[in-house]
Design a protein around this nucleic acid. Structure first.
Lengths: 122, 122
DNA sequence: TTGACCCGTAGGGAAAGTCCTACCTATTCT
DNA sequence: AGAATAGGTAGGACTTTCCCTACGGGTCAA
């Protein structure tokens, strides 16, 4: 009921924790970029881009997998990793309510309204 | 040249690390939501929403501050915290190149193209 | 000035993250 | 079958995070 369901509207806070934590690493973001620009790839092809032992990269891949950001498909003795962007779509959804804070001049209106709850701050 | 510059186009990987890491905590995301919906507030008002000692919340606020997600303004013996959404705008920018992976049927086209770089995966 | 209040910092302990070096399984080639 | 290849797991060292209890500095009210 967590990954195979149809729509799965409910994203828990723990899910969001995992996704943001997974993104909080330059190595893992680079892995996602490689999968985005280079398509699905086996581990070795990804590892070539990093100055790091393969077991360490394996752990990064595990973090990405548990966040739902990549999936693996076994093919012979290789594991093909593929980008799974659904969690990123949820990040974008999470972002929406904040948009008015940086969208053009609307920001000024928003900031003005936000200043009202307090009495005066000089 | 890091926080007060005009446009500051260059966002380093370390900056992104800090922003995503800051967002990887339900407590800190809730702080952002409180500032978004309730406007700028002093620490005590924020602390009332959490089952946590205030010094701990202070550390969370420091993490958010160092990520540029909030700013503080001293007012008497209070510190008014305000949402700073600029880093969130950069998160959205980071997200853009991934959009085609979840946008409608375009996803299928993208997935098809992504499958080509490899020879055969059966 | 004394005391109450707001809030940050210091330091400690438990847990988690990140890298490493072995080591293991599964698959393919000869 | 035996060797080589692909890649995950185990366990250790080091660092970071996150919570806590003290404690210190600035501000306001009496």
């Amino acid at each position: 009921m967590t990954a195979s369901g149809a729509v799965e509207a409910g994203t828990t806070e723990a899910d969001a924790d995992r996704v943001f934590a997974a993104l909080a690493s330059a190595v893992r973001r680079e892995v996602l970029r490689l999968l985005r620009d280079g398509g699905p790839q086996p581990v070795q092809a990804l590892a070539d881009h990093f100055d790091m032992r393969r077991p360490s990269l394996s752990e990064h891949l595990r973090v990405l997998r548990e966040a739902g950001l990549v999936s693996e498909q076994r093919s012979g003795r290789q594991r093909i990793y593929r980008l799974e962007a659904a969690p990123l779509a949820e990040v974008q959804d999470w972002l929406h309510p904040y948009e008015r804070f940086w969208r053009g001049r609307l920001k000024d209106l928003g900031a003005l309204l936000d200043r009202m709850p307090d009495d005066d701050v000089t």
